[in-house]
């Protein structure tokens, strides 16, 4: 349970900073007017804030009719609830919990299958630096205490994304004692689904912030949505988003502690599935990609990959660019190769 509360903290940090950085401190208001330039007609930005996925969440919509906005936001909340019922490790009958318990799941929802497919793609692109089967190591670290290398090695043998079989109508683990976590991707997947739902209901100008960001069209042509990346002890970076998603992974976002809280083992929540070490190469990685699920998974995977390889991976993943911050605080920006060509 330490895990959840810490996760909440990380999400909240990002969400709040996003609000402040992106919207000049006015995020707490229910209705916001877009920036002065280009304002036309009666378009008003509506914001809903609440708790979803154990995190402070916000959805911003540019629309004329407030009542309609309220109705569509309630549908969004229901949708979040539905997806949590599939992905949450803390819902006893969620599909992920059932799969982890039985090693097999038949008749899974399309959402679960798609999310696993997407996870597999990113695993391939990152050569296993992103891997959902890292779950047993998570549990090990979360339990705290002094962890013998040997134990980590033992568990590492169960970690391999290729051992998750995605057959039609059936998902199964190839090995015993395997388990998956979708912490590095479900957040992004849900963000995407909400954005898609909004578009389906005709809200093509929206920004969804559910831990990760997914922006549809800009509220006003030429003035895209702006979101901030949380950078402790530093000014936030502002990123313009339009028809794109942003996800961030931070090494210090979550720290495992021993249950006794005395002999604290400091480690990141980012565990390298290939080495079993909770020591990412970068303090923080943000990725801008067409979908939040992909950005989310990529930002996790890139945390363990040397930046020289980033451009290649980003272009293979169809991502736009990535921002990294090293332990010494130095920041850098890598643009995908395909993006450079355009």
């Amino acid at each position: 349970m330490t895990l959840t509360s810490k996760t909440v903290t990380r999400r909240r940090m990002i969400a709040i900073s996003a609000g402040f950085a992106g919207l000049g401190g006015a995020a707490a208001l229910n209705q916001l007017r877009p920036g002065s330039q280009g304002m036309r007609g009666q378009i008003v930005i509506h914001e809903w804030r609440g708790i979803a996925l154990g995190a402070e969440t916000s959805i911003k919509l540019a629309h004329e009719d407030r009542n309609e906005v309220v109705a569509v936001l309630s549908r969004c909340r229901t949708e979040i609830d539905r997806l949590e019922g599939i992905f949450s490790l803390y819902r006893p009958d969620s599909e992920i919990v059932r799969l982890n318990a039985d090693g097999e799941l038949k008749g899974a929802s399309i959402d679960f299958e798609r999310c696993l497919e997407e996870a597999r793609r990113v695993s391939i692109m990152t050569d296993g630096a992103f891997d959902i089967t890292v779950a047993p190591l998570w549990d090990l670290y979360a339990q705290g205490g002094t962890i013998a290398e040997r134990r980590v090695d033992e568990i590492r043998s169960t970690i391999d994304y290729r051992s998750v079989h995605l057959d039609p109508g059936r998902i199964a683990f190839e090995r015993d004692r395997m388990a998956i976590t979708l912490n590095g991707i479900a957040q992004g997947y849900i963000t995407d689904r909400i954005a898609e739902l909004l578009r389906e209901y005709g809200y093509s100008r929206s920004l969804v912030s559910l831990g990760e960001f997914c922006a549809l069209e800009a509220p006003e042509p030429g003035s895209p949505w702006k979101v901030g990346i949380d950078e402790p002890e530093m000014q936030s970076q502002e990123i313009a988003l339009e028809n794109a998603a942003l996800a961030t992974s931070s090494a210090e976002g979550l720290v495992f502690k021993s249950s006794s809280q005395v002999d604290a083992l400091r480690a990141s929540h980012l565990i390298d599935p290939r080495t079993g070490k909770a020591s990412p190469l970068w303090e923080q990685v943000s990725v801008v990609a067409p979908s939040a699920a992909r950005a989310d998974a990529l930002s996790t995977g890139l945390s363990f990959i040397d930046k020289t390889r980033w451009a290649d991976i980003l272009s293979r993943a169809g991502a736009h660019f990535a921002l990294g911050r090293a332990a010494d605080g130095k920041r850098f920006r890598i643009v995908s190769e395909t993006r450079l060509q355009h």
Binding site: K106, G107, S109, I110, D111, E113, D167, P168, G169, R170
Partner: peptide, 11 residues
């Protein structure tokens, strides 16, 4: 679906 018992193209 004939093999798996579930329709996997829609929900």
């Amino acid at each position: 679906y004939r093999r798996s018992g579930f329709f996997d193209r829609f929900q």
